[in-house]
């Protein structure tokens, strides 16, 4: 109970919001739009998984939004050449992994601070993408949308895939040696090294994985519409970081669990539609998002302060 205070309090907040919606805007729960909303958030959830791993290993990655744009354009360009979905997916994941490896080499290999390295790669990929694509949309061939399934089928598949990824990664973090290494490196790299873990290798792996997940998320995004917008992915890094933090991942590394992040993302992603359904004016949205992030951490801070006394 105590151990999962943050996760539970975020879940309580989400539950309160959902209960409020049930009372005041019951049409929020109409099944078809609800499924669409879940499907639309599925890519962000996949990115948040990677971000959680990155933060648990005591790093941060603010270049994921730019990576997402690059992957989406690569995937879209290949898809427009009528290549099969598998090839598109592999190319996008590969592109993401390469971009992630670039971060990884600088961060794990040279020991440079991740926040600055990914700040640099964020601007660099973003400007390179603008130079190359100039904001042009890419039209996808007809079979691409929903991966050839029906709309509902496609949306279900995407949501299932994202939740499955969360479950798989949550399991792996707990039960696989590699997963425990991520925690170990994040809580104390030196101790981890003495225990026979390779901290550099682990960190490098986490960034490659992050990139690969971004590549996957980009494909999960482009299959939801017949066009690729190269500007998609703007602000994704903040969304993923906020979800992880609200979900109880400690930026000091070594602590956090994926189900908490899952709930955190659900909470943040529910705010925007909730405001629309409750007929609140759009210009309050950012302030409320900020308040939710602050409240989540303040609750934690107050509790630990009282605990110390």
């Amino acid at each position: 109970m105590k151990r999962y205070f943050r996760e539970l309090s975020v879940a309580a907040a989400l539950f309160a919001l959902l209960a409020g919606l049930a009372l005041f805007a019951p049409n929020f729960y109409e099944p078809a739009p609800l499924l669409s909303r879940f499907a639309a958030q599925a890519p962000a959830l996949v990115v948040a998984i990677g971000m959680t791993l990155v933060i648990i290993s005591r790093q941060i990655d603010i270049s994921v939004g730019s990576q997402f744009g690059v992957c989406a354009v690569v995937a879209g360009t290949l898809a427009a050449m009528k290549l099969p979905l598998v090839v598109v997916l592999l190319a996008s994941v590969g592109t993401g992994a390469i971009l992630g490896a670039f971060n990884g080499v600088l961060i794990a290999g040279l020991g440079l601070p991740s926040i600055v390295v990914t700040l640099a790669t964020m601007v660099t990929w973003q400007e390179a993408l603008r130079l190359g694509q100039q904001g042009r949309f890419i039209n996808l061939p007809p079979g691409m949308q929903w991966m050839g399934l029906s709309q509902v089928g496609g949306q279900r598949a995407l949501v299932a895939l994202a939740v499955l990824m969360v479950a798989a990664f949550a399991w792996a973090l707990k039960n696989l040696a590699a997963g425990r290494h991520v925690y170990a490196v994040g809580s104390d790299a030196e101790a981890a090294r003495l225990a026979g873990i390779h901290p550099k290798g682990t960190t490098f792996g986490v960034f490659v994985l992050m990139g690969g997940l971004v590549g996957l998320a980009a494909v999960m995004n482009i299959v939801q519409s017949p066009q690729v917008d190269p500007n998609a992915g703007g602000g994704l890094e903040l969304k993923a970081i906020a979800a992880a933090v609200v979900g109880g991942v400690a930026v000091s590394g070594g602590r956090g669990n994926l189900w908490g992040v899952f709930v955190g993302l659900l909470l943040l992603a529910t705010i925007n539609p909730a405001l629309t359904y409750l007929h609140v004016e759009a210009y309050w949205e950012k302030a409320i998002q900020g308040l939710v992030i602050l409240l989540a951490v303040v609750a934690d801070g107050l509790r630990s302060r009282r605990g110390k006394r």
């Binding site: 739009p33 669409s36 066009q227 917008d229 998609a232 602000g235 925007n272 629309t276 007929h279 759009a282």
Partner: peptide, 26 residues
């Protein structure tokens, strides 16, 4: 005019905002 929503000049965000509006205002 029931609502004005921003989409940050992104197609996907516009799609989500519109979906919400369609649900919230039957």
């Amino acid at each position: 005019l029931v609502e004005t929503k921003p989409c940050d000049d992104q197609k996907d965000k516009a799609q989500q905002e519109t979906a919400n509006l369609l649900g919230a205002y039957p």
